[in-house]
Computed example of a mutant assay.
Amino acid sequence: MAKILISPSKYVQGPKELKKLGSYTQGYGKKALILISDGGYKRIGKMIEDSFAKSTCEYHFDFFHGECSKNEITRLCNIMKETKCDCIIGVGGGKIFDTAKAVAYYEKTPVLICPTIASTDAPCSALSVIYTDDGVFEEYLFLPANPNMVLMDTDIIVQSPVRLTMAGIGDALATYFEARACEQSDAMSCAGGKTTQAAMALARLCFDTLMEEGVKAKIALEAKACTPAVEKIIEANTLLSGIGFESAGLAGAHAIHNGLTVLEECHAMYHGEKVAFGTITQLVLENVDAQELQEIIEFCIALGLPVTLQQLGVHEVTKEKIMAVAEAACAENDTLHNMPFEVTPATVCDAILAADAYGHYFLGI
Rank of each mutant, 00 (worst) to 15 (best):
D356W: 12
K274I: 04
V275S: 03
T279S: 12
D171C: 08
L363I: 07
F177I: 08
T165F: 05
F137P: 04
C68D: 00
L76Y: 10
A32I: 07
K3G: 04
V129P: 02
F277T: 03
F245G: 09
A229H: 13
E332Q: 12
N78E: 14
I130W: 06
D86T: 09
E139I: 04
F61K: 11
T109G: 10
Y11F: 15
R180K: 14
G135C: 06
T56E: 15
K30D: 08
S128E: 07
C206A: 08
G359E: 03
M200D: 09
M149P: 07
E292F: 11
L312A: 01
A181F: 09
C206W: 01
N146Q: 08
I296D: 06
D155V: 02
M323W: 03
Y140E: 01
L173Y: 05
I89V: 15
T25W: 04
S69N: 03
Y24I: 14
T238S: 13
K19D: 14
P123A: 09
A331Q: 11
H65E: 14
T132I: 11
K46N: 10
L35M: 12
T227Q: 04
K54D: 14
T56F: 10
A354R: 14
F137N: 01
F207S: 03
F63P: 12
E17R: 13
T318H: 04
G304K: 01
T56P: 06
T227Y: 03
K30S: 15
C226Q: 05
G242N: 05
G22E: 09
I280P: 04
V103T: 12
V348W: 03
C226M: 06
V314G: 01
M149L: 15
A203D: 07
I36W: 02
L336R: 02
C114M: 12
I352C: 03
H315M: 14
E235I: 05
P115T: 07
S69A: 12
I322C: 01
I352P: 00
Y41N: 08
